[in-house]
């Protein structure tokens, strides 16, 4: 291969192919992601801030947004505690069935949200569910109510924290923890002062991803919530509702709010991650 090559300071060999590939990738991502996403921004601000002000003064939208935030925060807290604990168990402990469990943990990533909703309805449904009627007679309603929405949201985002924390736990190894133990630290002290600081960024990363996922869950929530306006209608359900009712402006504005939060999450993560790798 005797073509002319420029060797950049980074040591990358640049050939015409390099530029072709670069162009193809940029064009693909522009057409598939960048342009469509930017159009939502354009549509939202077509009439300046009126459509945004419009939805923020609509009490139903505000209620839906609050419900979404509340549900997402609860689901994220549950998944963070569960995720960190489960990661520690999977990496640091030995028990029968560990490999099976480790594989099953990823299941929620590949299950259809509609199936998630159906599964929860089959168990917690108030009329025919396996456990639903018992819980309901004890005064605890799951399906068509906030707990159901929280469960659906927690289900779909379940593996995200674990997937971030497990590799880091593997990577940091056990020596620092052993050193802390030999210096007299108890398990709790070792976790708080040694392990937690080491996995801190992985946890943050997992939490941010879970938050984005939780705020945006749609299918599973649609099945379990009953979609009752002002009670169990979340922000994503609101987008659908508005669009189907020919309120395109409202739909775009609400979608813009949601997109903004998720893009912010991604940008935060993009900023955090390289910093972490430099350490």
């Amino acid at each position: 291969m005797a073509e002319t090559r420029t060797v950049a300071r980074t040591g990358v060999r640049r050939t015409p192919t390099t530029y072709v590939l670069r162009f193809v990738v940029a064009a693909y991502l522009f057409l598939l992601v960048a342009w469509p996403v930017s159009l939502v921004v354009v549509h939202t601000f077509e009439d300046g801030f009126t459509s945004l002000e419009g939805i923020l003064s609509d009490p139903d939208v505000v209620t839906a947004l609050w419900l979404t935030v509340r549900v997402a925060v609860i689901a994220v807290v549950i998944n963070t505690v569960f995720g960190v604990g489960m990661s520690l168990l999977l990496v640091r402990q030995e028990f029968p069935g560990k490999r099976l469990l480790s594989a099953l943990i990823d299941l929620p990533l590949s299950v259809s949200p509609i199936v998630v909703g159906l599964a929860l309805v089959l168990v917690y449904g108030g009329r025919n569910g396996w456990l639903g009627p018992t819980l309901e007679s004890a005064g605890f309603r799951v399906i068509f109510s906030t707990p159901g929405i929280v469960m659906a949201t927690a289900f779909v985002a379940l593996p995200l924290v674990i997937r971030e924390v497990v590799p880091v736990l593997h990577e940091i190894g056990t020596e620092q923890e052993q050193a802390a133990r030999s210096l007299g630290a108890s398990s709790a002290q070792t976790f708080r002062r040694i392990t937690l600081p080491a996995i801190k960024w992985a946890v943050v990363y997992g939490v941010v991803l879970s938050l984005a996922r939780s705020l945006g869950e749609f299918g599973a929530v649609k099945v379990v919530s009953g979609n009752v306006l002002g009670q169990t209608r979340t922000a994503t359900l609101m987008v659908e509702e508005k669009y189907l009712n020919f309120d395109q402006q409202g739909a775009y504005a609400t979608a813009f709010l949601l997109a903004m939060v998720s893009v912010a999450c991604i940008v935060i993560v993009a900023i955090i991650r390289p910093k972490e790798e430099r350490r």
Partner: peptide
């Protein structure tokens, strides 16, 4: 380990 008062260098 934490109760043995042993110094350990890795």
């Amino acid at each position: 380990a934490q109760k043995r008062n042993v110094g350990f260098v890795f």
